[in-house]
Write a protein that binds this DNA or RNA. Structure first.
Lengths: 355, 355
DNA sequence: AACGGGTTTGCAAATATTTTCATCACCGCC
DNA sequence: GGCGGTGATGAAAATATTTGCAAACCCGTT
């Protein structure tokens, strides 16, 4: 069981001080700014800490107004291939800065997001990262009131499309989701596709999905093509269900020549749907996704998609947040609109106007 | 920016007390045990909290010896389909108990695991969850010394195989990985396969992978079949790389009749490898995985695999940990060896002895 | 109006560390 | 040998909340 110090609890800084024959203040300095304590003293303290198995208590530091070393991340869901890639990068970048990550998932519900932000405030996180640009006013108010440095991740919009009264000065590390949608759609258009099925993600509490769909539809309409209602379906974030939904559509009489998928999971569902119906890709049907999830390259043929630099976003976000914490005065104005890349693999072919 | 209280900082319990015309003690009680404060007083405090935008500071509670409301999870990697499913379940179960989740990933390195455990101890987590049964002695010692309730997740072994001197009394919520390996192998055996390729995961710092491989090999050897070295390959946790590795093996002259994959990612890689070489599944080659990851059911044909109840493990673990925190005296002896289920889909067929 | 029982509430001590300010020792220099 | 400056250390105040104890309160009884 727990090894106890002199006073019946876990050994504290005082126990260490006693053993090392220094004052508690010096032990505190040993941890927070080792350079200012003399080498010999440092050695004595090191020994005492080791003997006692002392573990410093960061909670106190937080109380006295210092940093907790915890950074909060509020995310729609953890269970999502591409978020978890970003998460992993975010987490390891934080670790190199000696920080830990507090995670909370709201399940695509911005009302719950507000609750989670409050709960992380209680934990006195040093900074906060949110996914997307659109949040409840009370969420933003809460963060500003507490004076917690915060960043918005994963989406980026040019100035004119920025929600009004939104914190334009917070770090924002993401990519232009509208552009991602447009790039994918334009690729299909360039290949001559005129009849495209838009299989997009649910847009409630999800500005990224909405932006992508808008980008894609704008591109197609800009080309003078109508998009009838039956060419638009909403898919959940699940390969199996996307597969079934899309298979249902493909089974119907007139088949589109291409599918625009709002993300790679939907695209993968589309690929399996085609396989299950014996429809050849890219011969009879083209499919494009967005994300370039791990594994999308392994498909046969490889999925053509727009690559999202997930790991890079995670890393940049961690760095930006740590910088804002460490130099609160400096005005970095972290803002990264990460470049997107069209990854052409094998799932998109030229439209066959004859058929 | 941050809204300040009377004394220049964020409003504290004292500011609230002043405004509500009660003592700080009462405000504290309002938060920690609302029932003991009279309704009218409660209302006054509620109002004051709202007006001031007060957010309680849990750090202090931690200092005074109370709980932080944080539970630490130390995991090999976040970026792993099935862990993230478990993680999501763990996280939301914790949320229903009003707890938050502190995550740290060690990248399959048990030495780093020890460091992370130490770092989470500094944060004074109320409890800790580790993945797997095998950990550095110093990791375990650290946890016991600090008196932190801890649980081991994801693996479970019958008593006789439990590592000696290991904390048998900690909650353990997992499944028998050896059995999982055996079940998969026996399914192939039952279908008449005699020449099986074992594509398993790296076993360094990964007792789960080792146990699965052992279970599979034991089953096959128990049936009197030899497993030559060329029928064993180690694959990384990556569909693309598994695909290439396996394709390399399949291209070689004598082809196995079935592939045992240590997890579904490897199995999916195997499926794509077969597709890329024009090998029919299950006609020419059978493939079985372990995990039943999201999406494994969508493959064409659907992947035959051994289902791991990931969400259930996450949920049970969260509940067990919270129980141990809330009733430290009670001796629950949480121990769940979750049942496994063979999910027969389309990737395994009978061996064709004629070929 | 005093009483009695339980319920609310306030006072003040306690919690573990940080941080400010002061002191002390040491060193080279005059 | 005293002086001024620097670096290391200690004493004590400060931090925000919790909690044990005791006092005050409430409300129906006597």
């Amino acid at each position: 069981m727990a090894r106890l110090g002199k006073r019946g609890r876990l050994p504290g800084i005082v126990d260490v001080a006693e053993r090392a024959k220094v004052s508690p203040a010096t032990v505190s300095r040993y941890f927070n700014d080792p350079d200012i304590v003399r080498y010999r003293t440092r050695e004595r303290i090191r020994k005492a800490v080791e003997d006692l198995g002392y573990v410093r208590n960061r909670a106190v530091r937080a109380m006295v107004g210092g940093a907790t070393g915890c950074i909060g991340l509020v995310i729609p869901t953890i269970d999502n291939a591409i978020f978890s890639e970003m998460l992993q990068a975010f987490s390891s970048a934080l670790a190199t800065h000696g920080r830990t990550m507090l995670i909370a998932a709201h399940g695509y519900d911005l009302a719950r997001e507000a609750v989670l932000v409050h709960s992380l405030s209680e934990q006195r996180v040093d900074a906060l990262a949110l996914i997307g640009l659109e949040h409840r006013p009370e969420t933003l108010a809460q963060i500003e009131r507490q004076g917690i440095p915060a960043a918005m991740l994963w989406n980026y919009r040019p100035d004119k499309d920025w929600p009004r009264d939104w914190p334009r000065d917070w770090p924002c590390i993401g990519f232009d989701n509208e552009l991602a949608g447009r790039m994918a759609a334009e690729h299909l258009l360039a290949l001559g596709h005129r009849d495209i099925l838009f299989a997009t993600a649910e847009e409630r509490s999800n500005d990224r999905a909405a932006d992508r769909r808008r980008g894609a539809l704008d591109a197609v309409r800009g080309a003078g093509l109508p998009v009838p209602g039956r060419r638009r379906i909403v898919c959940p974030y699940d390969i199996r269900m996307s597969k079934e939904l899309i298979a249902g559509t493909l089974r119907a009489g007139d088949r589109p020549s291409a599918i625009f998928a709002g993300n790679d999971v939907i695209a993968q569902g589309a690929l399996f749907a085609a396989a299950s119906l014996g429809i050849r890709v890219p011969g009879d049907l083209s499919v494009i996704g967005i994300g370039d999830f791990r594994g999308s390259d392994a498909f046969e043929p490889g999925l053509t998609t727009v690559r999202i630099p997930a790991r890079r976003i995670g890393q940049l976000a961690a760095d930006a947040l740590v910088e804002t914490i460490d130099w609160p005065e400096a005005d970095f104005h972290h803002e990264h609109c990460c470049p997107l890349e069209l990854i052409v693999r094998g799932t998109c072919g030229a439209a066959n106007p004859g058929v």
